[in-house]
């Protein structure tokens, strides 16, 4: 890729026509899993890492 993606923006096709062609896709179980695991893991890690960070910072 020689030109950055941003440089291609001006020549992009019509958004409206692409939006019109967009298919209706219900959320699949695997997507629900992806969202759930990602969010759950993110929140758990947030709690754990904040606790670790506070301990480390207190110790230093």
């Amino acid at each position: 890729m020689n030109s950055s993606p941003e440089r291609e923006v001006r020549s992009s096709p019509s958004v409206a026509s692409e939006m019109g062609k967009m298919p209706v896709e219900p959320l699949l179980p695997i997507e629900k899993k992806l969202i759930g695991w990602s969010l759950g893991l993110g929140i758990v890690l947030l709690v754990v890492l904040v606790a670790v960070a506070k301990l480390v910072m207190r110790g230093s």
Partner: peptide
């Protein structure tokens, strides 16, 4: 640590909003 959490939380929420609230395709 901050970006690991932000990645996982941000992406999942925005993907959910785009897919469910706004009906975007995958």
């Amino acid at each position: 640590a901050a970006i690991v959490c932000a990645y996982l939380i941000f992406w999942s929420v925005v993907y959910y909003v785009a897919r469910v609230w706004f009906g975007f395709s995958r």
